[in-house]
């Protein structure tokens, strides 16, 4: 049993409209998977089904081999779940709350205090143990939610937008926490902040309008979606002639040029082969002054936009 999460043909309808539509995916043990999608794409709904909060309309979801509907308690024992808005009891103190949650999740009374201290350390809460939850800032509350999700050392951690409302330093801390979970724990996190996913996740699931539109590592996704490469060359020389010569290089499909402060910037689209050495040789041969030569990397953001937009157009 290598898969932590197995989702097969999962569908969830709300009042006739499908929030999640025939979704299938698996997450292996120890993987950190990012769930990516625009607002209302079905990320939270899928996570809520996995966390046994909502039932699916049809299809099947298993966590650690247990069906989320039929063996709900077994599943819930194995997951740590942080809902989107981080709901907490505002009148409790942080220590009180965490040890209450630990007890609820079956952490024995002897281990409880040690466990609470461990997660407090992990999430940077050591100084606020005596504070009342309702008086904490959004960032701290978010971290209390994280600590709660981790307190019983769950096999699977499901985090719905864990970095929302945090400042850049806190985001970095949360990212470190998540990355450190990796070998022992499986993590499924959702976000719509793309650099976030590139930095923390080994695999990305892009979901749009209730369907999975892509599932791969960020690098592979990039390679797959790019199709061709794009090379930027900025040089000084006769625009027409240079464009002509560049166009004759093998594999080049189009060349566009734009001029700025005496330099010409060529955008060369080509096949999968790297033509940068050829551009350099041509420049050396013909005496063009080359200022910049680089391959444009398509960011995950472009991929995301491309994927979600084509999906929208096709429906």
């Amino acid at each position: 049993m290598d898969n932590m999460i197995e989702v097969k043909n999962l569908t969830k309808r709300f009042a006739g409209c499908a929030a999640v539509n025939d979704v299938s995916f698996t997450v292996a043990k120890g993987e950190i998977v990012g769930f990516l999608g625009p607002n209302g794409a079905g990320k939270s709904t899928t996570m809520r089904i996995l966390a046994c909060y909502l039932p699916a309309s049809s299809g099947e979801a298993k966590v650690a081999g247990f069906d989320v509907f039929r063996h709900s308690l077994e599943v819930r024992r194995r997951i740590g779940y942080l809902p989107e808005s981080t709901p907490l009891y505002p009148e409790m103190r942080v220590d009180e709350y965490l040890s209450y949650r630990a007890a609820l999740k079956g952490v024995g009374s002897r281990r409880r205090r040690a466990r609470v201290n461990e997660v407090k350390e992990l999430c940077g809460l050591t100084d606020v143990g005596r504070r009342i939850v309702g008086q904490l800032s959004k960032g701290y509350r978010q971290r209390v939610g994280m600590a709660d999700a981790l307190v019983h050392d769950p096999e699977l951690v499901i985090l719905d937008e864990p970095t929302i409302g945090l400042d850049p330093n806190q985001i970095r801390q949360v990212r470190d926490v998540i990355r450190n979970l990796s070998p022992k724990h499986t993590v499924l996190l959702s976000t719509h902040i793309l650099p976030e996913v590139e930095m923390t996740c080994q695999r990305v699931l892009i979901i749009n309008r209730g369907r999975i539109v892509a599932s791969d590592s960020p690098e592979k996704l990039r390679a797959r979606l790019q199709g061709g490469r794009e090379v930027i060359a900025e040089l000084r020389g006769d625009k027409g002639v240079v464009a002509q010569k560049l166009y004759q290089l093998p594999g080049v499909t189009s060349v566009t040029a734009e001029e700025a402060d005496g330099w010409t910037r060529f955008r060369i689209e080509c096949g999968t082969e790297d033509i940068r050495p050829l551009v350099f040789e041509a420049a050396a041969r013909d005496g063009w002054t080359l200022r910049e030569l680089r391959q444009e990397k398509q960011s995950l953001e472009d991929i995301f936009v491309a994927l979600t937009r084509t999906e929208q157009e096709s429906t």
Binding site: C52, Y53, R76, I79, Y81, P83, P87, L88, G106
Partner: peptide, 14 residues
């Protein structure tokens, strides 16, 4: 109203 029901019901309690 506050959403804590989601925390409660996703904990292993019947």
């Amino acid at each position: 109203r506050s959403g804590t029901i989601e925390m409660l019901m996703t904990a292993p309690v019947s």
